[in-house]
Design a protein around this nucleic acid. Structure first.
Lengths: 226, 226
DNA sequence: ACCTGAACACCGTTCAAGT
DNA sequence: ACCTGAACACCGTTCAAGT
């Protein structure tokens, strides 16, 4: 917390956490997570790979910082939706998280592979739990609802980003599924193929989010007054 | 589909897909996904790494086959629950999937990183969609419910397995959260810390599953007779 | 037919040494 | 104080050559 940065003794310092983070996120968007190596990131900053370790102890630390940055402003963007009842505010938070993950290539994979305890991530969690507690949900239900909705959102977005990534010549997601289903004997999958191979992920996300919100509504003991 | 295996010409063949898959899953359980390398797998089978490529075109193919094998019997184990209404059968399928992923170290990570179109995976999906269609849900809702519940289950189990893995000296999941929350100013997280740091993942999973099931119940237009 | 040997083109991370 | 050079201990994958 004082090794680098601080005043400005010695050299100008070509590196720092903020610039490194920014470059890493740009590289992620251009090339994807698999191509984000410490060496390539160093190249992009005209430096040797070893120099990065003065600012991030491990690659995992860098990824955690990237995930934290992705969550920046998510709680706030949903707070603009400060009117509306608890269910609309909760949905706004979940939508904002999905949007934040979609904003970077492989964003969900980065997020799922880390566990940030930074202000943006915890601020999001606090806002989420706050909406439910203030609506009269028990502490236990509010906390478990956070995990449930966040796990759903990350799980969904992981699939969403995986579905549109490959782009190679080989048949990807939907094509593979279609082939396997029509080849095999899966009556229910055959009957529902149009929906199974749909690429309307926004409405698929809304479907699941609505199930969760309606499930929560069933547990809701409306609080006294206000 | 004929290069290896087939009759038994030439040599006895120390390798084959089944034995390789079995060894890979054993190695996964012992050492985790990060330690599962083609070289270590080859070592465990007294062979050089290159030899594995006669049976699996890429490591990704091996991982896909591992994920498929994890799903073996999942549809059937839940079909034993063939009595019960649609909601009990659907819950049984979701629980069976979680159990199957938990049965192998990093099972959820392996599953999330692949897209098997094998008989076990598609059989599970077909059974899931079948339960809902036969209960009178529309094709579209049945297919979307599959994705929603599966994404939730994988998302949850990913977190569940991540939470108990580290074991290193550094504070892991719950400890890190506790520290960050008490250090910062997160009123709602502070109030719900006991639940947030709970390790009762089984009941957390049930909580979310119940929300989804109750959400689906709200869309249910009961079918005529039967 | 099946596997070895050896290579290719990489990885994350460490750390003495330079400036 | 900040970064380079060079190394350490690995990776996934390919493919001629052996048996």
């Amino acid at each position: 917390m004082s090794s680098p940065s601080s005043p400005a003794r010695g050299r100008p310092a070509r590196l720092d956490r903020a610039r490194t983070l920014q470059t890493a996120l740009a590289l992620l968007n251009q090339s994807g997570l698999d191509a984000l190596t410490m060496r390539r990131l160093a190249d992009a900053m005209d430096v040797r790979a070893g120099a990065l370790y003065r600012y991030f102890a491990t690659k995992q630390d860098l990824l955690t910082a990237m995930a934290e940055r992705m969550m920046e402003g998510v709680a706030e963007s949903a707070a603009a939706m400060a009117d509306g009842d608890w269910s609309e505010r909760l949905a706004a938070l979940a939508r904002a998280q999905r949007t934040a993950l979609l904003a970077h290539r492989d964003g969900a994979r980065v997020f799922a592979g880390t566990h940030s305890t930074g202000a943006s991530t915890l601020g999001f969690a606090d806002a989420f739990v706050g909406v439910l507690r203030e609506a009269g949900f028990s502490d236990g239900d509010a906390a478990r609802a956070l995990y449930t909705v966040a796990n759903y959102t990350v799980g969904h977005t992981l699939e969403e980003q995986a579905a549109l990534q490959p782009g190679d010549g080989a048949p990807e997601g939907a094509g593979l599924l279609r082939g396997a289903v029509t080849a095999g004997t899966y009556p229910h999958l055959s009957a529902t193929l149009p929906t199974l191979t749909s690429t309307d992920f926004a409405s698929l996300f809304e479907f699941g989010l609505d199930l969760l919100v309606e499930g929560l509504r069933g547990r809701h003991a409306p609080s006294a007054v206000k």
